[in-house]
Design a protein around this nucleic acid. Sequence first.
DNA 1: TTGAAAGCGGTACCAT
DNA 2: ATGGTACCGCTTTCAA
Lengths: 322, 322
Amino acid sequence: MKPSKSSKSPRWATVSYVPTAVRISEPTRRRVRQAAEELGYVPHAAARSLRAGHTRIVLLPTAHVPVGPLYSRFLDEFQWSLRRLDYTVVQYGSTGLDGDEAARAWAELRPVAVVSFGEVALTPHGVDVLKRSGARAVITLGPRPVEGAHTLAMDQRDVGASACAHLLERGHRRIGVVVPEEPGLEMFSGPRLEGARTAAAGTDAVIEPLALAYTEESAAALASRWPALGLDAVFAYNDEYAMLLMRALQDAGVGIPGDTAVMGADDLLLGGLLRPRLSTVRIAMETGQRLAELVDRVVRDPDGAPERHDLMAVRVVAREST
Amino acid sequence: MKPSKSSKSPRWATVSYVPTAVRISEPTRRRVRQAAEELGYVPHAAARSLRAGHTRIVLLPTAHVPVGPLYSRFLDEFQWSLRRLDYTVVQYGSTGLDGDEAARAWAELRPVAVVSFGEVALTPHGVDVLKRSGARAVITLGPRPVEGAHTLAMDQRDVGASACAHLLERGHRRIGVVVPEEPGLEMFSGPRLEGARTAAAGTDAVIEPLALAYTEESAAALASRWPALGLDAVFAYNDEYAMLLMRALQDAGVGIPGDTAVMGADDLLLGGLLRPRLSTVRIAMETGQRLAELVDRVVRDPDGAPERHDLMAVRVVAREST
DNA sequence: TTGAAAGCGGTACCAT
DNA sequence: ATGGTACCGCTTTCAA
């Protein structure tokens, strides 16, 4: 912005000066604000960060993942907390990019931090590119650590393991595990199935993966095959799939929990509305605020000791369907 | 980036040149790519846009709004489509900012377009600030137009009106309308109630607003007051509240739809699982892709004739609960 | 207190 | 095809 010739306008160098210096006369301060207001002056974030050599951008990769209310609430809170810490949250859609392409694309924005929820498989090289472009914190959430990045544990296997352990405890031995056919859910469904298998290992129980689409037709088809499957329990990925399947089973004459026990996950309110009430795995997520504070801490001290954080705590809520 | 002294590196001015010019020798092209790869060179988006005088940022204000799967799917698709059109989507949390503060904060990023879903009440002045900072498209979605901005119709009143019209058709005259107590939903619930009132105007029907929190306790409390309310129908804001309330009413001995008809909205799959099956209002949203294309069109020709777009089409799906 | 100038990284244009 | 340079808006530093 060119200095204005108007005698009423403050000098423009003074504008930058205002927020930092304390010994600015109050009238000048006011004049600056007022002039900025009148002229519609708004500082240019890109120019500032170019000059400063760093940004306050926290980049959140996103991909087309239809997740539940739990996750989106967490995300929302996380973003809000970051804003309060004066970061600019940039949500970057990364569908279809591979790890290294994505990392380069992200690096163009020179984010000070990248928090990846696992939508994109970050490689050590990708992490390196990001760090060399100025990222002070690269944080991944997921079961498997990436070299060079802070990794926070969010192990979906625990969900499957808890559900399965509960079913085993109840005496079930032939346990179906629903794997949704919808794309984008593999990230959750794979580990949940794996966890169930782990829990069953060493017992005489059998784990049977069951593909299921989120439609009434798919559920009805699966229910019609039920007698042939000979299962006495099913962990249905989450509450929504569980509700869908349970209804289809009931309509097909399968008694719940008499013939087959049904278990969900996420502890949706709606699950308690069915009869029998749906048993579930409640997932308590670390608050978004605490994760935001962690990001901030890592940004301020990138070489600090990596903190151990479990983002998820799971607990079985046994109701009537098991 | 300083020119490297290494004889193998291409000149840096050549780097910018590569994507635009056609008459670059293929070997040079390769050398450039390879050098960029080896050195971990990544272009600096802020520098580029500073020089270019404009960005490719599309700013999406967000606020803490717990919305359903319909909306978030739309948003997801919208973001993805914008990326394909080579825009950078910046989701900017704006909770707690008033219209003009928000506009200034957004303007710092010099977005080429702002698409506001109504979380923040944009003023004509705010729109002006944005446009003067380089925004070529300011688009608001909602029932009421803002001066200076493109406004796309997404009138939640239609939802309430359709639901109510259906109930009137079925002969109901004392109609409750659920207004969720959860914060952040006023943006939807207000217009839905208003639409219901409009539909009932000129008839002898009565509209009764009913506060309800999304908990079983709240639903049970409302159900226990039901006989005193003397209502013969209820539009329960959406399917989730409808499912919750319907179950509570049934538990309290109210016959559905004999004593009271219950109607939801959003056409969730889960609503079809209850008995009786839940009647609902299906909301068909314009695809995110089409909205992205519209944004692109407005950016390219900001002064084109404002296009008329209805983003929402509603249709009653009558099932068993009404 | 105020003015002037350098420089962040990339791009567009100049002259070679 | 290549080297040189000015400039985008802002911040910092040094000089007046």
